[in-house]
Amino acid sequence: MSSLSYIFKRLLLMIPTFFLVMVIIFMLVRLLPGDPAIAMAGDRASDADIQAIRERLGLTQPMLVQFWLFLSNTVQGDLGRSILMRTDVASVIADRLPITVFLAVYSVVLSLLIAGPLAFVAALNRGRWPDAVIRTVFQVGLSMPVFYIGLVLLTFLAAQLRLFPVGGYGDTFGERLYHLFLPSVTVALYTSAIIMRNLRSAIIEVLDAEYVQFARAKGLPPRLILGRHVLRNALISTVTLLGLSIGNLMSGTLVTETVFAVPGMGRLMLEAIFARDYPLIQGLTLTFALLVSLVFLMTDLFQSRLDPRMRLQ
């Protein structure tokens, strides 16, 4: 099967997935106590005011009708109007999406830059002190909550040493790299801990494999062995893990974006939930779902490149 038709098939499979996501999020938001009318009108509004807002928002219609409207409008590309922001959900998300995607990609790149070399050092020094130090440090990193790491980094690197700004997210690409460094590192420390452990054991496994021993016996230079044989084979399981951790990373943005005051989709999601902004919560969930699905698809494509034994089907 060619990659193009494989991609097409995968995209088709997303349709039922998305339908399920829509059903679940539609029901979940409505199961929360309180509703947008109460959140919007405030505690002081009269019951009649609230009823009027409910009617205006179409919340008094039967559930099935509401779901049908949500479904048919979404299919036509209309995500509705945000109650909180008083504007189109699609345009609100379009404003925030680039920031969150930037943060996510930046975090992944940093995780790989941190985890990759250290995994090699640890694996090649298996059982000796560098291995022990690296593993211990990452273990500590893994067990600390993200918001706490964030605050510690902010306090020392930004507020005291003034190496980085505490807030803001910059306008140009360069400024973004600088402003979003601390939030990205915060997220990256967690993901890199997971990746490092996995990559380290994968490398160790590959190093022991017979084909590597054979390559060594053949007298190939170590750099070639590591690059061509070890890294490529060790990466296969790590890529899967990286893909899976994108989901975690996305949910991590809820916390990171709040602590670092980055106006991305994660913080928007929190605000939307507090305001019971049904259309915005639904729109954001679909966007997150789309991002995660695309990442999974890319992971699979990349894996088949790394390992020709994995046929696309």
């Binding site: 902010l154 306090t155 709040t258 005051a261």
Partner: peptide, 16 residues
């Protein structure tokens, strides 16, 4: 807008 209390204070302390 800096929703987190601690970050808001840090921004002031950093002179931002």
């Amino acid at each position: 807008i800096v929703p987190d209390d601690a970050t808001r204070i840090l921004r002031l302390q950093a002179g931002e």
